[in-house]
Amino acid sequence: MAHSGIDLLFQGQNFARFLQGFGVTLRVAVITLVIGGVLGVVLGALRTLNNRPLQVILRLYLEIFRIVPTVVLLFVVYYIVPQVFHLEMSGEMVAIVTFALWTGAEMSDIVRGALIAVPKHQVESAQALGLNRLQQFRYVLLPQALPVALPGTINLATRIIKTTSLLLMISVMDIVNVGQTLVEANGHKHPAFAFWVYGIMFIMYYILCAPLSWWAKRIEKQRLERSNG
């Protein structure tokens, strides 16, 4: 066999298109992380307040986004939002909205956990020093909660990257969709081509996620070592 299929990937525009798809994947992941992260920090902080109705609503929000699979959420936003709000949304926009809402829910739980892990006397001392609510948050809670929240947040980032593979389902030209198109165009002539395309996709996701996983594991270990001596 003169052709193992892999060289097809470097013919014509094929590889450039592959990289373009990779760019779309990355863009959606980064925007989702930023919007969802900010949303999660705000909601997480709100969840530490003593306000019963607010707690119930935020808890419900979290549970709904935990119970319903992300694929289903994606299609709910895809079909329902344009109808109800009379909005034209691109597929990429639909994905960013869905993923950001999901990220916000997950992030709020991480942030809440980190905030309530800060010992109570820290806040009481801050109050005794006369710091207002915002100052307490900015100078006392946040610096101590951040290291606790960091590993979980990094792991969430890897989950976001992996979730972007769902973009294909709403016809966004992400890396998976480009790969799929290339295989459909060339696959029947060279059966091994599909193996290489999906193999390379595997490696690309791995390259994105693995360093983040290692980083999260390392800082979590360091933190535990520091707190346990």
């Binding site: 992996k162 593979s165 769902l166 999906y198 193999g199 996709m201 595997f202 996701y205 693995a210």
Partner: peptide
């Protein structure tokens, strides 16, 4: 470190 969707495509099509 890889998504299930890519794993499935690899198994089924690759």
């Amino acid at each position: 470190n890889t998504p299930l969707l890519v794993q499935l495509f690899f198994i089924y099509y690759g």
